[in-house]
Nucleic acid binder design. Sequence first.
DNA 1: GTTAGGG
DNA 2: CCCTAAC
Length: 693
Amino acid sequence: MVLHKRLDYGFNGYQVPPTPRAARSARRRGINRRITEDSQMCAFDLLATLAGKLLLEGKSSPSSTEMGSSGKEQCEAVKSLVKDGKEEESKHDFCNLNSSDRSFIVSELVLQASRLNNCPKELAHTQNDTYSGPASTLTTSECSEKVISAEHLVNNKSKVGYGSFSGKADIELFGCRVSPGCKVVCESKRQIKVEPNDLKLAISARDDICNSKSPMAWDRKPSCLVSSDDSVKSLSRDHIPCGSLPYNRDNVKLVTRDDDENSSGYTKPSIINKAFRPSPRIGDRRIRKLLASKYWKVTPNLKDGEHFKTDADMKHVHHNGKNGFKRLRSQRDFPFKKRKLYHCSSLSNLDGGTDGMCNSPGKGSSRDASTSMLPKVTGTSTSEASQHASFKSKDSHVKLKIKSFRVPEFFIEIPETATVGSLKQTVLEAVTAILSGGLRVGVLLQGKKIRDDNKTLLQTGISHDNKLDALGFSLEPNLSRAPPPLSPEDCPFPLPCDASQPLSRHPPSPSTTNAALLWGTSDALPDPPGTNLSNFNESDHDSAPSPTDVSLENSTVDSRALVAVPAMNAETLSVVPMQKSKRSEAAQRRIRRPFSVSEVEALVQAVEKLGTGRWRDVKLRAFDNAKHRTYVDLKDKWKTLVHTARISPQQRRGEPVPQELLDRVLTAHAYWSQQQVKTQFKQQAETCRLVST
DNA sequence: GTTAGGG
DNA sequence: CCCTAAC
């Protein structure tokens, strides 16, 4: 392990082995991909979505005594919100919840903020950034807090999730190719939708991860968590592991929905406290598969299935210089790039979908001197001009929807020998640290940061509907607080994934794109039938693994993504895309290059003529010019062809091979097998004859 | 270096 | 596709 080298899983296009098995194989051999210099720091561009929308709602006086009288009203309001949200959801269908998959995700957070009625007396209440006690004035800082608290809610749910053994909270890395399973996850678990060129981070929190370790009692049913109620307050404080959060959530309303529950979207707060129903679905197929998978292995130090038991174990693995060395460079070390985060104000989803509401003056100006994350442009706007009305309607309320937050940019250093599972774990830790460690929220109005935290929304103009579309929030690292150390409960084991996904967040550079295109078409060159078959020309692209694998086409990113994050411009990235230059030493697994039909035909034809035991001749005859096809490849392909021909067409995968070819395969295989037997028999007879004489 | 077969 | 034993 060369210390000065470092794996780069950034946008250079780390190519994960195409199959889990390949990943295992690669891991077994300690093969890893890109090596880059320190100067070429890459970073994940993580997209963390709150799996829903945040609603900021201003309310006149969310004091603790409010629940009695106006609580019902509030809940009714929430109810209507949920209803509206449902409409929106059904329309945009980004949170389809399969009834068989009761993933729980904080799909809506309704933050209640007090209205900014000018009330100088109460301004005194809200000094500083710490909002405490009942107040009836929402200052910008409170607004920030609410936003961030909401994020922490989500985040902490996620933490609970992955901390529990059932591992129901998923953090998943999506690559160019999204496996069907992951797709389902995306859709059913209300995870974020991701872009093929972006590193994908999906965080979901599910109710059924809650076990005895996580006393959080989230009810699946639509619930309204009004923390001004004392019991619920204790729940939100005690059971939601908000830990280091300084934020007061007394005003936080958590509204969850569940599509398969035909409900009005509101149940009495007390219901929330009812005992959590342990999910019997621990046997979730996926999880089961994961549990059985070898991906549990974190480092060579650990045996399969073994996972962290103690904090010391964690540290051992994490800081063992040889294998478990990981270093996370996070907030402190590197400035965050600005991220844009657009709130998409919408209460109800009516129709249409101009992104007017989501457009912010800061759009496009992702480069800013400060270190905050600016709102990210959300391409899929669910709001429209007509929603201004709904915005306006609730007179004294300011309702905002934040579609997603981006995780601040961070860097990861991980040894080559690390497993994919440990990489995931590292990312998970990093994200967790960032999200829970210390974030501040900045409020931007028309591109300008509102620094006076004591201003009311009314004073700043945030309450003006016509300015809401210019409102944005930025996440900023809170450098005053170090990320809390990760406890083993947080990450008792790496999150396995049943599908290794290529990580690529970098839009393919022109060169790689061309290579990929060439690469993709080289095999499809029509092979003139009857002519010399040895014309599978070497395309020489196998040595340049491109992030733009042809499998990209499989990565049909759901257009219903919660947030469509535009691919970053290549020029905005300060990282030199890795070409094949640096990949000299470490034995690189060859790119998988599926045989085209014409290649198969050539192979079949050659084998028909030469038989199954002369692969070198087959190679010379039919694939002489295809340097990337070795005779071992041809032999292997024949093997798989025979297998393919024997199985039912339904079981076949990949590019379908004409049945006619498969028939020829079987025929030839039978013939040559018979020949082999014959020759063996002859040989035996010969030897017997020789021995006897 | 080839071939065969398991992974 | 990779790996390896066997030839």
